[in-house]
Simulated scan of single mutants.
Amino acid sequence: MTKKTLVLGVIGSDCHAVGNKILDYALTEAGFNVINIGVLSPQEDFINAAVETNADAIIVSSLYGQGEIDCRGIREKCDEAGLKGILLLVGGNIVVGKQNWQQVTKRFRAMGFDRIYPPGTSIETTIHDLREDLGITTLLGVI
């Protein structure tokens, strides 16, 4: 089976590199081909990397609270670049302050994200969701 390709990075003016490296390591160990574009990444870097690698998903991380601003319009830009329907995930401290998470999720869904993860979400949850969403199965069924 061909490995699924994921584009991973930290969006906007966010320079939180440690979590990005941990995600990269865990996703690679889980069997994914990870294209890590690093920190301080504009939307265009995620999109260009996804186009160049024929990625199956884009994972956007943000820890400095401005993710909502940084992520606006990314689904439309993906569609324009020929990535219509690509799986979009976002997680971390994506908004400022302690906001109602249901409302945060609703706003990010409206922006076109498929999965929205609050602070403290385990990487195992993300890996499980990716496997489910990308249809990765084993001889025993879906992992």
Rank of each mutant, 00 (worst) to 15 (best):
L88N: 05
N36T: 02
E44M: 08
A50N: 06
I22Y: 02
W101F: 08
E44K: 07
L87W: 03
R107K: 07
I35T: 07
V34D: 07
D45I: 09
R107V: 10
D24T: 08
Y64Q: 06
I86G: 00
N93C: 13
W101V: 01
T105W: 09
Q102A: 14
L87S: 05
D56C: 06
V51M: 06
I22S: 02
V18Y: 07
D56R: 01
C71S: 05
G19K: 05
S61R: 04
S41Y: 00
C78T: 01
D79H: 05
N93F: 15
E52T: 07
L87F: 03
L23M: 12
F32M: 08
N48S: 12
N48C: 07
I37C: 03
Q43V: 10
F46I: 13
K98F: 12
E52K: 07
A30P: 04
I35R: 03
D56E: 04
I94K: 05
Q99T: 13
D70Q: 07
L87R: 07
V39S: 00
F108M: 14
F46E: 03
L27N: 02
N20K: 02
G92Y: 00
A50G: 12
N100R: 05
V51R: 07
E52C: 10
N54E: 13
N20S: 01
G67V: 15
I47M: 00
F108I: 05
I22C: 14
V90A: 05
A26R: 07
C15H: 15
A26W: 09
A17T: 13
G65M: 04
D24Q: 02
K98G: 13
E76G: 15
I94P: 09
E68W: 00
D45V: 06
I86S: 00
S61L: 13
G73A: 12
R107E: 13
Q103A: 15
A26G: 11
G19P: 03
R107W: 00
S62V: 09
Y25N: 11
R72K: 12
E76Q: 11
K84N: 12
R75W: 04
I58A: 01
I69E: 14
V96F: 15
A50T: 06
P42D: 10
K106G: 12
N48W: 13
I47C: 00
D45N: 14
I69L: 10
D24A: 05
Q66S: 10
R107P: 11
G65L: 05
I74V: 04
A50V: 14
N33I: 00
V51D: 01
A57Q: 01
P42G: 14
D56N: 09
D24I: 00
I59V: 03
L40W: 13
N20T: 07
L87E: 06
L27V: 03
A50H: 02
Y64G: 15
N33S: 14
I58N: 04
L40P: 03
R107D: 14
T28P: 01
T28I: 06
G31I: 06
I69N: 08
K98I: 12
